[in-house]
Protein backbone atom coordinates (compact mmCIF):
# COMPACT_ATOMS: atom_id res chain seq x y z
CA UNK A 1 0.00 0.00 0.00
CA UNK A 2 2.74 2.42 1.00
CA UNK A 3 3.73 4.57 -1.95
CA UNK A 4 1.56 2.81 -4.50
CA UNK A 5 -1.26 4.83 -5.99
CA UNK A 6 -4.45 4.00 -4.14
CA UNK A 7 -6.55 6.37 -6.20
CA UNK A 8 -5.78 7.40 -9.79
CA UNK A 9 -7.75 9.51 -12.16
CA UNK A 10 -7.40 9.66 -15.94
CA UNK A 11 -8.71 12.80 -17.58
CA UNK A 12 -11.78 13.20 -15.39
CA UNK A 13 -14.18 16.05 -15.82
CA UNK A 14 -17.31 16.96 -13.93
CA UNK A 15 -19.93 19.06 -15.66
CA UNK A 16 -23.04 20.18 -13.78
CA UNK A 17 -26.27 20.85 -15.71
CA UNK A 18 -24.81 19.86 -19.12
CA UNK A 19 -26.50 21.44 -22.12
CA UNK A 20 -28.34 24.01 -20.00
CA UNK A 21 -27.75 27.73 -19.68
CA UNK A 22 -26.32 27.23 -16.18
CA UNK A 23 -23.84 24.59 -17.31
CA UNK A 24 -20.76 24.54 -15.08
CA UNK A 25 -17.48 22.66 -15.59
CA UNK A 26 -16.34 22.11 -12.02
CA UNK A 27 -13.48 19.73 -12.90
CA UNK A 28 -11.68 19.87 -16.21
CA UNK A 29 -9.54 17.02 -17.47
CA UNK A 30 -7.76 16.14 -14.26
CA UNK A 31 -5.28 13.27 -14.10
CA UNK A 32 -3.57 12.57 -10.81
CA UNK A 33 -2.49 9.86 -8.42
CA UNK A 34 -2.92 9.66 -4.67
CA UNK A 35 -0.12 7.72 -3.08
CA UNK A 36 -0.94 5.19 -0.43
CA UNK A 37 0.08 5.86 3.15
CA UNK A 38 0.83 9.50 2.44
CA UNK A 39 -0.87 12.81 3.19
CA UNK A 40 -1.95 14.66 0.07
CA UNK A 41 -3.42 18.16 0.08
CA UNK A 42 -5.66 19.54 -2.64
CA UNK A 43 -5.02 23.22 -2.37
CA UNK A 44 -6.83 26.10 -4.00
CA UNK A 45 -9.19 29.02 -3.43
CA UNK A 46 -12.94 28.49 -3.08
CA UNK A 47 -14.51 27.66 -6.41
CA UNK A 48 -11.39 25.90 -7.61
CA UNK A 49 -13.15 22.54 -7.60
CA UNK A 50 -11.36 20.90 -4.70
CA UNK A 51 -14.55 19.76 -2.97
CA UNK A 52 -15.92 18.35 -6.22
CA UNK A 53 -12.66 16.54 -6.87
CA UNK A 54 -12.70 15.15 -3.36
CA UNK A 55 -16.21 13.81 -3.80
CA UNK A 56 -15.15 12.16 -7.08
CA UNK A 57 -12.10 10.61 -5.47
CA UNK A 58 -14.25 9.33 -2.64
CA UNK A 59 -16.79 7.66 -4.97
CA UNK A 60 -19.53 10.01 -3.87
CA UNK A 61 -20.32 11.04 -7.41
CA UNK A 62 -19.51 9.96 -10.94
CA UNK A 63 -17.34 11.90 -13.38
CA UNK A 64 -18.92 13.14 -16.59
CA UNK A 65 -15.82 12.00 -18.47
CA UNK A 66 -12.67 10.06 -17.80
CA UNK A 67 -11.88 7.17 -15.45
CA UNK A 68 -11.26 6.71 -11.76
CA UNK A 69 -9.42 3.75 -10.30
CA UNK A 70 -9.49 2.82 -6.63
CA UNK A 71 -6.87 0.29 -5.60
CA UNK A 72 -6.37 -0.47 -9.27
CA UNK A 73 -10.05 -1.14 -9.91
CA UNK A 74 -12.02 0.98 -12.41
CA UNK A 75 -15.04 2.31 -10.52
CA UNK A 76 -16.23 4.86 -13.06
CA UNK A 77 -19.25 3.00 -14.36
CA UNK A 78 -20.17 1.03 -11.28
CA UNK A 79 -23.82 1.23 -10.32
CA UNK A 80 -24.51 3.23 -7.19
CA UNK A 81 -25.01 0.11 -5.07
CA UNK A 82 -21.47 -1.12 -5.70
CA UNK A 83 -19.98 2.33 -5.46
CA UNK A 84 -21.52 2.64 -2.02
CA UNK A 85 -20.08 -0.72 -1.09
CA UNK A 86 -16.57 0.42 -2.06
CA UNK A 87 -17.07 3.71 -0.28
CA UNK A 88 -18.15 1.90 2.87
CA UNK A 89 -15.14 -0.33 2.87
CA UNK A 90 -12.43 2.04 1.76
CA UNK A 91 -13.21 5.62 2.74
CA UNK A 92 -13.87 7.67 5.81
CA UNK A 93 -15.18 11.22 5.36
CA UNK A 94 -14.70 14.27 7.49
CA UNK A 95 -16.96 17.03 6.29
CA UNK A 96 -16.51 20.75 6.46
CA UNK A 97 -19.62 21.25 8.58
CA UNK A 98 -19.15 18.04 10.58
CA UNK A 99 -22.62 16.99 9.38
CA UNK A 100 -23.62 15.17 12.50
CA UNK A 101 -27.24 14.25 13.08
CA UNK A 102 -28.96 16.40 15.67
CA UNK A 103 -31.17 14.84 18.26
CA UNK A 104 -29.17 11.64 18.63
CA UNK A 105 -26.20 10.95 20.85
CA UNK A 106 -22.50 10.96 20.12
CA UNK A 107 -22.39 7.17 20.27
CA UNK A 108 -25.32 6.77 17.87
CA UNK A 109 -23.79 9.20 15.41
CA UNK A 110 -20.57 7.26 15.41
CA UNK A 111 -22.35 3.90 14.92
CA UNK A 112 -24.61 5.08 12.12
CA UNK A 113 -22.42 4.20 9.11
CA UNK A 114 -22.48 0.52 10.11
CA UNK A 115 -26.22 0.20 10.68
CA UNK A 116 -27.04 -1.11 7.18
CA UNK A 117 -24.54 -3.94 7.56
CA UNK A 118 -25.15 -7.32 9.12
CA UNK A 119 -22.76 -6.62 11.99
CA UNK A 120 -24.52 -7.11 15.33
CA UNK A 121 -25.32 -3.97 17.27
CA UNK A 122 -23.21 -5.08 20.21
CA UNK A 123 -20.09 -5.35 18.10
CA UNK A 124 -20.65 -1.94 16.57
CA UNK A 125 -21.15 -0.40 20.01
CA UNK A 126 -17.91 -1.86 21.28
CA UNK A 127 -15.99 -0.57 18.30
CA UNK A 128 -17.56 2.87 18.61
CA UNK A 129 -16.75 3.10 22.30
CA UNK A 130 -13.14 2.17 21.63
CA UNK A 131 -12.82 4.96 19.09
CA UNK A 132 -14.47 7.47 21.40
CA UNK A 133 -12.08 6.43 24.11
CA UNK A 134 -9.10 6.99 21.81
CA UNK A 135 -10.41 10.46 21.11
CA UNK A 136 -11.21 11.24 24.77
CA UNK A 137 -14.93 11.38 24.10
CA UNK A 138 -16.11 8.36 26.05
CA UNK A 139 -17.56 10.40 28.95
CA UNK A 140 -19.71 12.27 26.41
CA UNK A 141 -21.00 9.23 24.55
CA UNK A 142 -24.62 9.66 25.62
CA UNK A 143 -24.82 13.38 25.06
CA UNK A 144 -26.76 14.73 22.10
CA UNK A 145 -24.85 16.67 19.49
CA UNK A 146 -26.41 20.02 20.29
CA UNK A 147 -24.75 19.99 23.68
CA UNK A 148 -21.21 19.48 22.36
CA UNK A 149 -18.50 22.07 21.92
CA UNK A 150 -16.93 22.67 18.52
CA UNK A 151 -13.92 20.53 19.35
CA UNK A 152 -16.07 17.67 20.61
CA UNK A 153 -18.17 17.75 17.48
CA UNK A 154 -15.02 17.65 15.39
CA UNK A 155 -13.76 14.59 17.24
CA UNK A 156 -17.16 12.90 16.97
CA UNK A 157 -17.05 13.46 13.22
CA UNK A 158 -13.57 11.94 13.12
CA UNK A 159 -14.71 8.93 15.15
CA UNK A 160 -17.59 8.41 12.76
CA UNK A 161 -15.21 8.56 9.81
CA UNK A 162 -13.11 5.83 11.41
CA UNK A 163 -15.85 3.39 12.50
CA UNK A 164 -15.51 1.25 9.39
CA UNK A 165 -11.71 1.16 9.70
CA UNK A 166 -11.10 2.77 6.31
CA UNK A 167 -7.75 2.81 4.53
CA UNK A 168 -8.31 6.27 3.12
CA UNK A 169 -9.53 9.34 4.98
CA UNK A 170 -10.90 12.26 3.00
CA UNK A 171 -11.30 15.61 4.74
CA UNK A 172 -13.09 18.57 3.17
CA UNK A 173 -11.91 21.92 4.58
CA UNK A 174 -11.67 20.36 8.04
CA UNK A 175 -10.36 23.53 9.72
CA UNK A 176 -12.84 25.95 8.14
CA UNK A 177 -14.92 26.34 11.31
CA UNK A 178 -12.19 25.84 13.86
CA UNK A 179 -9.98 28.18 15.82
CA UNK A 180 -6.23 27.83 15.82
CA UNK A 181 -6.09 25.60 18.86
CA UNK A 182 -8.66 23.13 17.51
CA UNK A 183 -7.01 23.25 14.08
CA UNK A 184 -3.75 22.14 15.59
CA UNK A 185 -5.56 19.42 17.50
CA UNK A 186 -7.07 18.18 14.28
CA UNK A 187 -3.73 18.18 12.49
CA UNK A 188 -2.26 16.16 15.34
CA UNK A 189 -5.03 13.55 15.04
CA UNK A 190 -4.58 13.32 11.28
CA UNK A 191 -0.86 12.94 11.69
CA UNK A 192 -1.41 10.06 14.10
CA UNK A 193 -3.80 8.40 11.69
CA UNK A 194 -1.25 8.72 8.90
CA UNK A 195 1.43 7.23 11.11
CA UNK A 196 -0.81 4.21 11.66
CA UNK A 197 -0.81 3.63 7.90
CA UNK A 198 -3.87 5.46 6.67
CA UNK A 199 -3.84 7.50 3.47
CA UNK A 200 -5.08 11.06 4.03
CA UNK A 201 -6.41 13.45 1.40
CA UNK A 202 -7.32 16.94 2.53
CA UNK A 203 -9.03 19.61 0.47
CA UNK A 204 -8.17 22.98 1.98
CA UNK A 205 -7.08 26.54 1.37
CA UNK A 206 -5.83 26.92 4.93
CA UNK A 207 -2.02 27.40 4.90
CA UNK A 208 -1.82 26.02 8.43
CA UNK A 209 -2.73 22.66 6.99
CA UNK A 210 -1.32 22.91 3.49
CA UNK A 211 2.09 24.07 4.59
CA UNK A 212 2.34 21.74 7.57
CA UNK A 213 5.32 19.41 7.63
CA UNK A 214 3.16 16.27 7.87
CA UNK A 215 1.94 16.84 4.31
CA UNK A 216 3.77 14.75 1.72
CA UNK A 217 2.42 16.27 -1.48
CA UNK A 218 0.33 19.23 -2.53
CA UNK A 219 -1.83 19.40 -5.63
CA UNK A 220 -2.77 22.96 -6.50
CA UNK A 221 -6.03 23.62 -8.26
CA UNK A 222 -7.53 26.61 -9.99
CA UNK A 223 -10.77 26.81 -11.95
CA UNK A 224 -11.25 23.08 -11.98
CA UNK A 225 -7.84 22.19 -13.32
CA UNK A 226 -4.61 21.06 -11.73
CA UNK A 227 -1.77 23.54 -11.91
Amino acid sequence: MEGKAVISTRGISKIFNPGRPDELTAIDNVSLEIAGGKVTVLRGPSGSGKTTLLSLLGCMSRPSMGRILVNGRDVTKLPERFLTEIRRRTFGFIFQQFNLIRGITVLENVMLPLYPLETPLGTIKKQARRLLDDLDLLPRQNVTIQKLSGGEQQRTAIARALINDPDIILADEPTAHLDTHLSLELIAILRELNRSGKTIVIATHDPMVAENEFVHSVITMRDGAVQ
Binding site: P18, R62, P63, S64, T76, K77, P79, E80
Partner: peptide, 14 residues
Amino acid sequence: NPDSASMEQLALER
Protein backbone atom coordinates in the same frame (compact mmCIF):
# COMPACT_ATOMS: atom_id res chain seq x y z
CA ASN B 1 -26.54 1.59 -21.31
CA PRO B 2 -24.41 0.16 -18.52
CA ASP B 3 -21.23 1.33 -20.26
CA SER B 4 -22.25 4.91 -19.91
CA ALA B 5 -21.54 7.01 -16.84
CA SER B 6 -23.88 9.78 -18.00
CA MET B 7 -26.49 11.51 -15.89
CA GLU B 8 -29.22 9.84 -17.90
CA GLN B 9 -27.89 6.41 -17.01
CA LEU B 10 -27.71 7.42 -13.37
CA ALA B 11 -31.30 8.64 -13.52
CA LEU B 12 -32.41 5.36 -15.10
CA GLU B 13 -30.55 3.45 -12.41
CA ARG B 14 -32.40 5.40 -9.78
